[in-house]
Design a protein around this nucleic acid. Structure first.
Length: 423
RNA sequence: GGAGAGUUGGCCGAGUGGUCGAAGGCGCACGCCUGGAAAGUGUGUUUCCGCCAAAAGUGGAACGAGGGUUCGAAUCCCUCACUCUCCGCCA
């Protein structure tokens, strides 16, 4: 959520920047500016009436103490109309605040100046790439490999739950655990401290990171207890710092977490969802940082390098995209996507998204920092990235490393798996 | 799930209708003291929304959350959430 100050002070710039995301903000911003001034004027009035009330109340107390009963009664009568006016104006004030809030949360985050203009994935910019795309004679897609070597049972998942909830078996299951451990170890070594968060969150947490109210339909909602299944560990981990004022010396805060992730993926269909390409439940290791605004973009780069080191260690053909305005999420200021190449499907699969949210989430979270010398706390920057999401990594790993009669496990994973080939 | 007791500032803890944003203590910051430190001592130490060009200053709000009673609520009433204890159930 943008701050009112941001909107007031850089009105034109905000409108221009949001155009990069294909968002026309001019009307909303006009309304916000007008409503905010209305709100402030009303508040001045309410405060003045309140002050009068307070002073009368105080004097009544003193009068009663002195035994001046009739004077106190007279004063009491004066309060009747003041009280009515306060009531009326408070209603006006509260509805203005509510309306203002409703408008402000409709505005997406401002894209960073380096974000390319564009409307679809085709307009994303390749930043750099690496690895080698293997040349295979007749590669099988991972869903066939999974069946052939009995690694993943999609039909069984349908029986138990529904489409998009696969059952991993044998070496397939072991590979999941190996990847999770590998990713966590790498993150911890890189200085992230591990947390294991709840897989369900409350409404406040959903709002804090921006899933609610915008993406309500993307999360599984347990209505009986009004809880949401997390779509990513970003939600619980970032919300650890909701309503927190950190000491500046603690920044950057770095956390990593493994979690299962749950997404309804309403409206998806076709080859995009085949096999592991899009699931309702999947595993992911997430990295999160809370940063000082002065160096949050350097931190973003370091997170990108961390993810890059993972795909390199896994010997995958990879590339990094800088997302264009139209392809970026509502909450992000700058996002890099990582893709790995899937040989059998002959296409790039997104395996990670690394973003700087600047103060957009922090403003919702009331996540601030200050040092001893400062009176006023300021909003921190939040960043996160997948490091990494498993399913498409598994898809690429199976497809790219297949050979006649087996699948080779990348060297770095062998100690985690306990085997070096699937056959 | 049943019964009871709680929820106050960074922490502990007092406060049952009036001048309480809140005693006292701990912690922390700065100063004095000291050769240096400890002890001692003094001052300060929540956050949000406004007014003001800004600072100074100043108005308002907040004692788990929301509502109510009252001229006035941390204090009384209602609803909800959470915590603890006992019982039940359970990996």
């Amino acid at each position: 959520m943008l701050t009112l100050k941001q909107i007031q002070e850089n009105r034109q710039e905000v409108i221009e920047r949001l155009k990069v995301k294909g968002f026309d903000a001019s009307l909303i911003i006009d309304q916000i500016v007008e409503l905010d001034s209305h709100r402030r004027i009303t508040q001045v009035d309410v405060d003045a009436l309140q002050a009068e009330m307070n002073s009368i109340s105080k004097s009544i107390g003193l009068m009663l103490k002195d035994g001046k009963k009739s004077e106190a009664g007279a004063a009491r009568e004066k309060t009747v109309t003041i009280k009515e006016n306060i009531k009326k104006l408070t209603i006006v004030l509260e509805s203005a605040e509510k309306e203002l809030q409703n408008l402000v949360i409709q505005l997406p985050n401002l894209p960073h100046s380096s974000v390319p203009v564009g409307f679809s994935a085709a307009d994303n910019v390749i930043v750099r790439e690496g690895g080698v795309i293997p040349k295979l004679a007749n590669p099988l897609p991972h869903w066939e490999l999974a069946k052939k070597y009995d690694l993943i049972d999609f039909e069984l998942g349908v029986k138990l739950t529904g489409a998009g909830f696969p059952v991993y078996k044998g070496k397939g299951a072991k590979l999941q655990r190996a990847l999770i451990n590998f990713f966590l170890e790498e993150a911890v070594t890189a200085g992230y401290s591990e947390v294991m968060p709840p897989l369900m969150v409350n409404e406040d947490s959903g709002f804090g990171t921006g899933q609610l109210p915008d993406k309500e339909g993307q999360m599984y909602h347990i209505t009986q207890d009004n809880l949401y299944m997390i779509p990513t560990a970003e939600v619980p981990v970032t919300n650890i710092y909701r309503d927190v004022i950190l000491n500046e010396s603690r920044l950057p805060v770095r956390n990593c977490a493994y979690s299962a992730c749950f997404r309804r993926e309403a409206g998806s269909y076709g080859k995009d969802v085949r096999g592991l390409n899009r699931l309702h439940q999947f595993d992911k290791v997430e990295i999160v940082q809370i940063a000082n605004p002065s160096n949050s973009y350097e931190i973003l780069e370091s997170m990108v390098l961390h993810v890059q080191s993972l795909v390199e260690k896994l010997e995958m053909p990879w590339r990094i995209l800088r997302l264009c305005g139209g392809d970026m999420s509502f909450t992000s200021a700058l996002t890099y996507d990582f893709e790995v190449f899937s040989t059998a499907q002959e296409r790039w699969l997104e395996v990670s998204s690394v973003s700087n949210f600047e103060s957009f989430q922090a403003n919702r979270l009331k996540l601030r920092f200050k040092n001893e010398n400062e009176k006023k706390a300021q909003l921190a920057h939040t960043l996160n990235g997948s490091a990494l999401a498993l399913p498409r990594i598994v898809a690429a790993l199976l497809e790219n490393n297949q050979f006649e009669g087996g699948i080779r496990i990348p060297k770095i994973l062998v100690p985690f798996c306990g085997f070096d080939v699937i056959e």
